[in-house]
Amino acid sequence: MDELELLKRDWQKKDKQLPQISFDEIYKMIWKKSSSIVKWIFFISVIEFALPHLLYFLPSMSKSLAIWKDLGLGNFLLFSNVVQYSVVLFFIFQFYKRYKEISSLDNAKQLLSNILKTRKTVKYYVIFCLSLIFASFMVMAVGIYLNEDPMTAMGYSYRPENISPEKLKTTLIATVVVLGVVVTLVMGCIYFLLYGILLKKLNKNYKELKDMDI
Rank of each mutant, 00 (worst) to 15 (best):
I115K: 01
P52H: 01
K33Y: 07
Y191E: 06
L18I: 11
L130R: 01
L111D: 00
W40K: 11
L172K: 01
Y27V: 02
L130W: 04
Y195E: 02
I41V: 04
A174R: 07
F76W: 13
S157E: 06
G155C: 04
S45F: 10
N75C: 03
V122N: 02
L198G: 03
I92A: 08
L146F: 10
L71Q: 07
L185V: 12
I41M: 09
F192A: 09
L172I: 10
V176N: 02
V186T: 05
N162P: 00
V177D: 03
W68V: 07
T175L: 12
S22R: 12
F91I: 00
V139L: 11
V142F: 10
C129T: 12
L132G: 09
K39C: 01
V178E: 05
K63E: 14
L4I: 11
S104T: 08
I102S: 04
A135I: 15
Y195R: 06
L73G: 00
S36A: 14
I92V: 13
L132E: 12
T118D: 04
V82A: 13
K28A: 13
S131W: 05
R159A: 07
P165R: 02
S113N: 09
E3N: 15
K100C: 06
L202G: 02
S34W: 01
D213S: 09
N205D: 07
N75K: 15
N81W: 11
K97Y: 12
Y124F: 12
G180M: 04
L105T: 14
I92G: 04
G188C: 03
